[in-house]
Design a protein around this nucleic acid. Sequence first.
RNA 1: GCCGGUGUGGCGGAAUGGCAGACGCGACCGACUCAAACUCGGUUGCCCGCAAGGGCGUGUGGGUUCGACUCCCACCACCGGCACCA
Length: 862
Amino acid sequence: MSQTTTAAPAEGSGYDPYAIQQKWQARWAEEDPFRAGGDDDTRPRKYVLGMFPYPSGDLHMGHAESYAYVDIVARFWRHRGYNVLNPIGWDSFGLPAENAAIQRGADPREWTYANIAQHKKSFRDYGSSYDWSRILHTSDPEYYRWNQWLFQQLLERGLAYRKDSPVNWCPNDQTVLANEQVVDGRCERCGHEVVKKKLTQWYFKITEYADRLLDDLNQLEGFWPSKVIRMQRNWIGRSVGADIDFEIEGHPETVTVFSTRPDTLHGATFFVVAPDSDLAAELAAGAPAEVRLRFQDYLDSVGRESEIERQSTDRPKTGVFLERYAINPINGERLPIWAADYVLADYGHGAVMAVPAHDQRDLDFARAFDLPVKVVVDTTAPITGAIPVIGTDDDGVPLESAVAELEASLADIDPAKTGVALTGEGRLINSGSLDGLSKRNAIARIIEQLEAAGTGRAAKSYRLRDWLISRQRFWGTPIPVVHTADGRIVPVPDDQLPLTLPDAHGLDLAPKGTSPLGAATEWMQTTDPETGEPALRDPDTMDTFVDSSWYFLRFLSPNDPTRPFPKDEAARWEPVDYYIGGVEHAILHLLYARFITKALYDMGHIDFTEPFSNLINQGMVLLGGAKMSKSKGNLVEFASSMVDPGADAVRTAIAFAGPVEDDIDWSDVSTTGAQKFLARAWRVAKDVTSDPDVVWADGDQALRRVTHRLLADVPGLVEQTKFNVVVARLMELVNAIRKTIDTGAGPADPAVREAAEVTAMILDLFAPHTAEEMWQILGYDAFVGLVPWRSADPTLLVEETQKAVVQIDGKVRATIEVPARIGAEELEALARADERVVRSLAGREITRAVVRPPKVVSFSTH
RNA sequence: GCCGGUGUGGCGGAAUGGCAGACGCGACCGACUCAAACUCGGUUGCCCGCAAGGGCGUGUGGGUUCGACUCCCACCACCGGCACCA
């Protein structure tokens, strides 16, 4: 087929993986046996999906690992009698194609589709059992036309909107980044430091789904890796507390702040606004000229800081006093208002009430600027015992005396002196009617009080931000709206979709801060669909995570030009039963796909709310302990890895290397060991001398037991993704067959044939070419990949005798062969009589015997 | 700082509370060979012992149990997520 599939035959063994691969790949290509069944197929269904690849350069060993697992799962369910959908596609929009195009002066299309062609060949060479009739590429207009449909669906429901706000900006890629694409203050893509920039951009309102995205994670418990669930919970970051309204002197509207500790409201001593918020600008505008200048200076210096500088811990607190005052709604106290960058414009309401005694950040600021600290929670007070009920003192001590008693110790931990805020549990003090209450009760009480006064209410806040989807780049889905001369934004009518990208030739794709599409004059010029007046297109393109947020639906009808996906088919196939890919997508992609699924559900397009029933995350493939990367020069390419050992050996070696979720070091992976095993398995099939019509039951019982034990155990092991154990067990079976042929019942024994056939069937999960070859050698027609699972004979799973262990004082002193159905008394008698037991006891008396037939007898002598 | 995970031979790793180290890699010994490769057979946790056998052993220290890699507590080391998120 090609040079890259050349596999060196293990010399002398006669096993020639290269010839076998060529032969079976040709037959698969010709007969397409892994196409998913249609409506007439009555088998139950399983949708098995690997996260689709991004076509940057060649595939590497991370892909080899991921798609080996995908194929194991897909092949397994076919053997189990399911109609399996296992499609493949390409996430083919995005920056690397554009950057490669800039470097080479080529069209991103050419680079992208050339890489895809290479990927397809690699997957064919790998023997992956895809339904090749359902290929999709997100950069095809036939695909992104439905991205545009999705955008308009969201726009119609107010879930897509434009806003002017500080965004993450990568100065290197010259484009904005979603919050999720900023890692440690750096661009996820290129590693350049990210800065904040104020821009008008398109957003998807994922925050409207924050509660459901968080709460529905409970349904996934046990089906998704707990690590991913935890990461998503962290990312959404729900905080519960209260919104509190503050009057501002000389300011018409009240300003709301969010706090998780409304119980400490009496301890607020100042008020802080984010310097880059609109509120800060408004307040500064109403301040004396000198304050305005200081504020402007401060704002400029904040703007110059990179995200890395801003996020560094132990950074001294900075800020400016705005000479304005907020009024504490609970006690009327005047709180000086400061602008400080430790308060973030885009979290909560961009303003906080500062309670330095009970918040470390507020305390650090108060100490830096010499602001008062007022303790309102006595963290030395006992809060043990029953949870105190509001308004009572549960240990019966009069409150005043209790407080007086503790004053001495409280003085020792005065935050103003120690610099350590009192954030723990305690009893309220200096807080009027809240005094004596526990933190929890005080929170409940103050929310009641604020609600009664109309100055506050219970509230939640999230770390999650809305999803910024505009990108100032060429190689993405054009945003299907028109900007009219009078400033309206009109969606491109459905019958004018797809709005396709213009030809890249003649366009300057180099990053310059604005979208290259803006310079495509002809393309930009359009008319207002409503009035016919001249208008402009939107020059930005969509984040490629939009493309991947729903592609699992498009696989149901990738070639249908009339709709994004058929609802009835979605009901039959979705949600995806097994979704397999790297943990690097634990937040971004999976969160976005979950969000879009819920949005589509709300719109009535689908009838499920979670896209992926089971998630399997494989670990990374390392080399010499380091992450593989092109820049480090330690990248093992997928295609070249198959050259010597052959595809089957690579797949088997990966499956055997260790647990799916653990990292694999490629230097620990033995493809030659795997190849030796495959050659052994193949030779065993060659050695079988009986005909297919032999009666298995007449065969060697010991070998049959091994075979049927394996048939019984493998399904559970595969469902627990213990693929390495399945390979090990299969090796044991091959070893047992070898032994039976060479030194036991011989090659004509029916059990040898039976075991060889089972080996071929199970080996299909890992080494499909070799398995097909074995199946043919054993006298059957193709394809072993479609053979129904042989069920285990239960009578062969029950052993007649068993080894029982005899422990004396916790140490194993003897093992005795006993009937499997032995009774306790009989077993104990046998154990007591055993000469090794007698010798070990050396006359000591047995004081206690625990007997667990048929496995264990445990004697104690003291 | 908050949340979580992991720790088993020279290496990758097995093990519903019941013989720790399955299976493999590597290493060593042997058969085949003029020789090697391939293949096949054997040995391989550490220590003492010619052997029979014995002692020790799953990061450390405690605990529960007839019995703990497995359950509980504390600690150590490494890894991951979040982090000026009010």
